[in-house]
Design a protein around this nucleic acid. Structure first.
Lengths: 217, 217
DNA sequence: GCCGAACCGTAACGTACGGTACGGCCCGCG
DNA sequence: CGCGGGCCGTACCGTACGTTACGGTTCGGC
């Protein structure tokens, strides 16, 4: 912290050492799942359990701090809605889809979602809410302006932006996330992700793209 | 039920008493999540722990037995592909969508998926595989013949049935399952499910319905 | 009526792990 | 140089829970 780079920005007041500890916890979470022990984290991070408890108070505290810390790293570049032609809109949608698929198929995301889902049952902490907020809702918050801009430009047609977003979400994700969470081997190569992004975008445009002529439905 | 119906059919060799025990375990799973204790199950089922271990061997054994038994109950009525007109195809798709949404939004399904996802991380058992097999893959197996029949009848157009199914899956489920698993309050009324089923079906038909005239894309 | 098997209730054991306490080390500061 | 705070390593405690063991009870078969 004495080397005062802008830790306030991403890590919201975390010492570099603390971030290193959280990184270790995250790596351990990916490997071990929810059954990681405080001792294991301490050993991996080369710190004492006393420090762990002093800094994060609790096992749940450590977990939520880890999840939030990882969430703060996932900020993907947002797209401004200035590109008003169909090509740039398509590119933006494809980029979103591709980024999203990359995220949800990453090891860390899978591990984090797993532990969050597991904890959502017995509501001791709000890991589920945190993941939801930084995952699905953050995505919506960044994508909706693009959709609105597309509608303003006459490229898209929809009544409810939320509904349009959810459709896009479904077209992109399909069964991928639940299959990965349930342990299905489903390796998404770079190429497959790109192809899926293009397909989902085309399907979305087919459903919500503005028809030049009169349209039914 | 007491009149010795074919238990061999659904319960694959489980005595009624054992099924009752599994029912208790299931109810407890819904209430407590994965942190249910053997003692709690024994108390709820009014049986001894010794019996539990004798019958299911292990805690994981009990869990898998519970999941499999619940899975054996979810068999929804399959639809034969004899109705070749658009109306019956639409009705079938809507029925599937509605059934599926009802299932994944039910308390038991959420609880089961939660524990399966949690266990998928550290692969001690194959709960994830079981759930996947009886959930998403069973759905595909039942729906694909309908899609194929629709294609045979000239009502649908697609190259890969798997791909078409996954699109339908995405259009129906969208973000519902992950949100529910992560603990988002999202109450799906009967009416909302029906509406979603109709919407998803319409969107699917818009994407994969056979155009009478020449089509682009 | 008697025997053995299955099962219930409960007590007991072992262990793993969350949480805490304590001694030693480093390091900045007076 | 001495002091004190922060941290490491580790040993320790309490407890919850999986698993096992055992005495008592019901019940079908002879």
């Amino acid at each position: 912290m004495l080397l005062a780079n802008a830790d306030i920005d991403n890590g919201e007041g975390l010492t570099e050492r603390q971030q290193a500890v959280l990184d270790a916890a995250l790596r351990l979470l990916v490997e071990e799942g929810d059954n990681l022990t405080m001792t294991a984290v301490a050993r991996r991070a080369s710190c004492s359990k006393e420090t762990l408890y002093k800094w994060f108070g609790d096992r749940d505290g450590l977990l939520t701090a880890t999840v939030q810390w990882q969430a703060s790293k996932v900020r993907v570049a947002s797209v401004d809605g200035k590109g008003l032609d169909l090509a740039s809109l398509t590119a933006s949608l494809e980029r979103f889809a591709s980024d999203w698929l990359s995220v949800i198929s990453s090891d860390t995301s899978i591990a984090l979602n797993r532990v969050a889902v597991g904890h959502a049952g017995s509501g001791k902490d709000d890991l589920g809410a945190v993941v939801l907020e930084n995952g699905r809702f953050a995505l919506a918050k960044r994508l909706k302006p693009v959709l609105e801009a597309g509608r303003q430009a006459g490229l898209l047609e929809f009544a409810d932006a939320e509904m349009a977003f959810r459709t896009f979400f479904g077209l992109v994700g399909r069964d991928v996330q639940i299959r990965l969470l349930l342990g299905d081997r489903l390796e998404l190569t770079e190429a497959a992700i790109g192809g899926d992004a293009i397909r989902a975008t085309q399907q979305f445009l087919a459903l919500f793209g503005a028809k030049t002529g009169p349209q039914g439905l």
